[in-house]
């Protein structure tokens, strides 16, 4: 449960998250209502006619010792290919650090949007619409599907939707919001993999013998500098 809603979201978003996350509700990754675009803006937003997913979830007493996902994955091969491509634009391989798709982030996204629960179905419509939009946009600009386009054409589109300013550009706002949600899911999924966990540097989830050691000398040094910078040295906890 996240009981610490975050102050840096916009006020409206934070309120929504504040209520919902705090209550232990699952909330959609991509929040905010889909507004009808103004004429001549992102008018080619696809209108997918998706059948609701009605299979059972894992129930109220799943086997936690052997976690299993009971619902089938529902993305098409083309959707998975495009998702992998986007995931790897977001997190490309860097030396010995794998790309997102190399650590099965595509499976996480597919599992996510295939889940029968309401908030995940809400994400499903948005993510699948976003994938379709990418192909439509690429067709309009370059007369080919996104995965078939050369990298520079792909990045031309991505550059239009991946940055802060896109969210206030009516032509790209809706896609930018979808990409932002997908980006956060891809990042969490990447960092959750064994390789991603190593990349981010998480040190926990190991049994320690004896008392908890507390901050390392290096971490305490950093803390002292922070206290100093904030004028809090005289108030240090003792």
């Amino acid at each position: 449960m996240d009981k610490y809603p975050q102050a840096r979201l916009t006020r409206r978003e934070s309120l929504k998250w504040l209520g919902a996350i705090a209550a232990g509700l699952s909330v959609p990754l991509i929040h905010g209502r889909d507004k009808k675009p103004a004429p001549g803006t992102d008018a080619h937003w696809p209108d997918l006619n998706l059948q609701p997913i009605t299979v059972a979830g894992y129930g109220t007493d799943p086997n936690m010792m052997k976690p299993e996902t009971p619902w089938p994955l529902t993305m098409t091969a083309e959707q998975r290919e495009l998702t992998s491509l986007i995931a790897d634009i977001l997190v490309p391989r860097e030396g010995d650090k794998p790309s997102a798709s190399e650590v099965s982030v595509t499976d996480v996204v597919d599992e996510w949007i295939s889940a029968p629960y309401p908030s995940f179905q809400s994400d499903r419509v948005k993510i699948l619409s976003g994938l379709a939009w990418l192909d439509d946009e690429c067709m309009q600009r370059f007369d080919r599907k996104f995965v078939a386009a050369p990298a520079e054409q792909q990045l031309e589109i991505i550059d239009d939707i991946a940055w802060e300013e896109a969210r206030s550009n009516p032509r790209f706002a809706r896609m930018a919001r979808v990409l932002d949600g997908l980006r956060r899911l891809v990042m969490t999924a990447y960092f959750s993999s064994p390789e991603g966990t190593k990349d981010i540097g998480y040190q926990g989830n190991v049994a320690l013998a004896g008392d908890y050691p507390g901050p390392t000398p290096e971490a305490l040094e950093h803390l002292d500098a922070a206290l100093q910078e904030l004028g809090l040295t005289d108030y240090a906890y003792s």
């Binding site: 509700l25 979830g57 129930g59 996902t69 629960y117 993999s193 989830n205």
Partner: peptide, 16 residues
């Protein structure tokens, strides 16, 4: 780890 659970272990109506 969260990765071992469905949906990265996130809450659902069945396991809030």
């Amino acid at each position: 780890t969260a990765r071992e659970a469905p949906l990265l272990g996130k809450g659902t109506p069945e396991k809030p």
